[in-house]
């Protein structure tokens, strides 16, 4: 589903190279965890996948279902099924969460040539999805993310993911700022989305989240490259021994 080949990317403004020859393949149905120490390029990778303009791809290729997405803008990538759950979701003052969900869902439907959802159908879907995440409808009338707690913001991200039904989900440090109860709810939400035709990329710093979202593959990112890949036992090894050993081994 996702194939990243020799990817090089830098910050557009000052030319600092962050991703330096990264290779990664994620298959449909797979949950891949990307781990790595601070500054290894984890968040940058998520932004580059989603098409953020502040980063320039200077070399390499990102193939999604066999086709390059480098020329697509963020909205086109989203409509094609790529979703990024943000580490720090943005506040959108004055735009009710409900309204935002409707605009987003219908924009994606439009891009796929589908009719907009009827209001009852929309409400039905939102109620169902919000229920599983333990979110009440009153919260959805508030402006998106404005005054939401850390946990509420992350839940709102997962809610959007559930409703938009993406094919490639990228979760950037979704566990940060969550207490254990919220973590459980969010993880359950993600697990419910596991399916043979969907790939999930979980970017995380700690093993903790991976106890709840058990990955099929684990990749260690360091200085903008994947230096080691393995199965879930790799995550446990990291938890026990830290990154130092693996970094040394790769060097």
């Amino acid at each position: 589903m996702l194939e990243i080949k020799n990817l090089h990317a830098r910050i557009a403004e000052d030319g600092t190279e962050i991703i330096r020859g990264l290779n990664l393949t994620v298959k449909a149905g797979e949950v891949a965890a990307i781990m790595g120490p601070n500054g290894s390029g984890k968040s940058t990778l998520s932004y580059v996948l989603a098409g953020r303009e502040d980063y320039e791809v200077t070399e390499g290729e990102i193939l999604y279902n066999g086709e390059s997405i480098l020329e697509m803008d963020p909205a086109e990538r989203a409509a094609s099924g790529i979703f990024l759950a943000f580490q720090y979701p943005m506040e959108i003052p004055g735009v009710a969460t409900m309204e935002f969900l409707k605009v987003a869902m219908n924009a994606q439907r439009k891009a796929r040539g589908e009719e907009p959802l009827t209001i009852p159908e929309f409400l039905k879907r939102v109620k169902a999805a919000a229920g599983t995440l333990d979110m009440d409808m009153a919260m959805l009338k508030r402006p998106l993310n404005v005054g939401f707690s850390g946990g509420e913001k992350k839940r709102a991200e997962i809610l959007q993911m559930k409703l938009l039904q993406p094919k490639l989900c990228v979760l950037d440090e979704t566990d940060s700022g969550l207490d254990i109860d919220a973590l459980k709810i969010v993880a359950d939400g993600v697990n419910a989305l596991r399916s043979p035709d969907r790939a999930i990329v979980v970017i995380t710093h700690y093993q903790r989240l991976l106890e709840h979202i058990v990955p099929d593959t684990v990749h260690v990112l360091y200085k903008g490259q994947v230096i080691k890949s393995g199965d879930k036992s790799l995550a446990m090894e990291l938890e026990a021994n830290g990154y130092a050993g693996i970094i040394e081994e790769a060097a």
């Binding site: 979703f83 943005m90 004055g94 987003a104 402006p143 938009l164």
Partner: peptide
Amino acid sequence: DQKFYVMQRGIPEEEAIALIVNGFVK
């Protein structure tokens, strides 16, 4: 940041701006 966030949900650029602006004038 705001624009990228809104566009990441599949909302085209001009609509994203309009959405943020409409929130601003609400």
